[in-house]
Design a protein around this nucleic acid. Structure first.
Lengths: 327, 327
DNA sequence: GTGAAAGCGCTAACAA
DNA sequence: TTGTTAGCGCTTTCAC
């Protein structure tokens, strides 16, 4: 910067101001300095600027859950992409972090060490209490997940209750009576989807059959085994509502292998509406969650939080997409 | 840090040394200082440390290609995950960047502005020349892609030629004679896979039929349309070799919709061996590329490059995984 | 073995 | 409108 200043015949302050678009510098000077900097291929050292300014234009993001497993869920990744875009639009950067589940404090380190100004956490897993603690301790974060009533942190999430309800209601309308639920209800989001499921059943005068409710870990590698063993034991159902499309895909595969016709014998609805859902045969009915809006909303809430504002909750609509698998 | 120093009754220098594990400080003192820092929840400011040390322990990663599209290819994402892990293991961080294809210089900015010490680029697209330019200009980078002979940058890639050969050879062994190739050969990696395909055909005395070669954009949203229109025009084939699993999935869906039996009428082999490939019905034969090793190798090569070493090429094995779709 | 001092590259009072 | 000055929080000679 000193070089640029010297060559421009001004002081470093002026260069700094010109390059950061300060209104103090007249447009002409500003132009000249910018051009010179460009020619010299000079770029402001962001680290030094951060140090002086005492803030960082980078935010950290982590996907909770078994790293490799969670990183392979297309829906969660589409949220990561959307967050990256939203940050990009504001000239901010994204630091991607792997969280070792043994060590929740790792989250705060990123902020404490000044590497990032705030944190976006995708998925709550069973970390709700820990996240509450961190938020209470003043850690600036925003979370994608279920909108829990006692959350001390800002949350963006889909309308899981409604989504679960819609999916189930749709299956009932299609004439299904024995509707299985597939999902890990230790997950707050899945718990809500399950509540919606129960609600829709109740409304139709049906009772949830515990035998038709299968718990599994989101993104479990052995998902297929779990599904197979469940199908081996359980034949008395005419529909499945899966709490994620990844699970629904496995179910589709398992059913296909057993020559069970979808939707003729069993109807299937998934959740998230990942890209391939539409391209399968049969194409997969699913509950769409708008990941673009999710990314924008997460960044917005995080910045509000970083600016000291109270912290809101944003619930995004859940929209049932009807396709062949439940026709 | 001043606080910690004062409370420990030592100088900031000593604290700095203790916290960075300098051998100058006796173990006892070091222990004491670390413990105190922990109690005070003190974390070294990474930005300031970087500034002083004049290096950064963060590297940038970008996936080339239409952002949303590229970000949705599970295989590319598994590489991102693997890179994140490899960096994590070395105490380094990962800055995720979206690249706007209009502006290649954006890549260098991340390094020039001191935000990252080097760059990992996933996919070459048609950027080979630009990457060569950047590398020639001294930008430290490592690339996942095809091992091109004139590359000035370090490359990690699968053995695409071999992979294409193996897949095709396998289909020929299964008795197929009219084998279609699906992939965008503007992509260097795909071009090599296609060469392997041609090689295997030639070896069996077959000639590639141009009508059986369909170009499409990797990750193209309208992939399904392209496939459908192709299938409408073209019926004279008994196998498809798809240059990516994502494409293979769409093809599987399209064939299913037309009641074409896989593998009975048409055999199918994909590429990448993404997680769901094994869970579909029929399960998808594919050529596996080891993304874990890829991540490690990319980080290794980049660090070598950052240390001023010459820059090597690492070719990872391609392994055909036989499943139902080509049985 | 430890501390004092200098300075990494930048920004923001404050002064002119 | 511009420049001078004083650090941001840390690491590292260099001297003790």
């Amino acid at each position: 910067m000193a070089d640029v200043a010297r060559l421009a015949g001004v002081s470093a302050s002026t260069v700094s101001r010109a390059l950061s678009g300060s209104p103090l510098i007249p447009e002409a000077t500003s132009q000249r300095i910018r051009e010179l900097a460009r020619q010299l291929n000079y770029k402001v050292n962001v680290g030094a600027a951060n140090l002086r300014r005492r803030d960082v234009r980078t935010i950290g993001l982590m996907v909770l859950g078994d790293p490799m497993k969670a990183m392979s869920d297309p829906f969660l990744l589409s949220i990561v992409g959307a967050v990256a875009d939203a940050l990009d639009a504001r000239g901010m950067n994204l630091l991607l972090s792997r969280v070792k589940s043994e060590n929740p404090e790792q989250l705060a380190t990123l902020v404490d060490s000044g590497q990032v100004g705030g944190l976006i956490v995708v998925g709550q897993l069973n970390w709700h209490d820990r996240l509450n603690q961190l938020a209470a301790a003043g850690l600036p974060l925003a979370v994608w997940g279920a909108c829990l009533p006692d959350a001390l942190y800002p949350v963006v999430g889909g309308d899981n209750l409604r989504g679960g309800y819609e999916a189930t209601h749709h299956l009932i309308e299609q004439g299904c009576r024995q509707i299985a639920f597939f999902g890990d209800t230790r997950h707050p989001e899945v718990r809500l989807r399950h509540q919606g499921y129960v609600q829709a059943l109740a409304e139709a005068g049906l009772h949830p059959n515990p035998q038709l409710h299968q718990v599994f870990q989101f993104g479990d590698t052995r998902l297929r085994e779990v599904i197979d063993s469940w199908l081996d034991r359980q034949h008395d159902f005419d529909a499945v509502f899966a709490a994620s499309d990844v699970a629904a895909l496995s179910i589709l595969g398992a059913l296909g292998e057993r020559r069970v016709q979808v939707p003729a014998q069993v109807r299937l609805v998934g959740y998230d509406d990942i890209a391939i859902a539409a391209h399968l045969h049969p194409s997969l009915s699913s509950v769409r969650q708008p990941s673009d809006s999710a990314g924008k909303a997460l960044v917005e809430l995080l910045l509000e939080r970083m600016a000291g504002q109270p912290g809101r909750t944003i619930m995004l609509p859940a929209e049932l997409v009807r396709r062949e698998s439940s026709a």
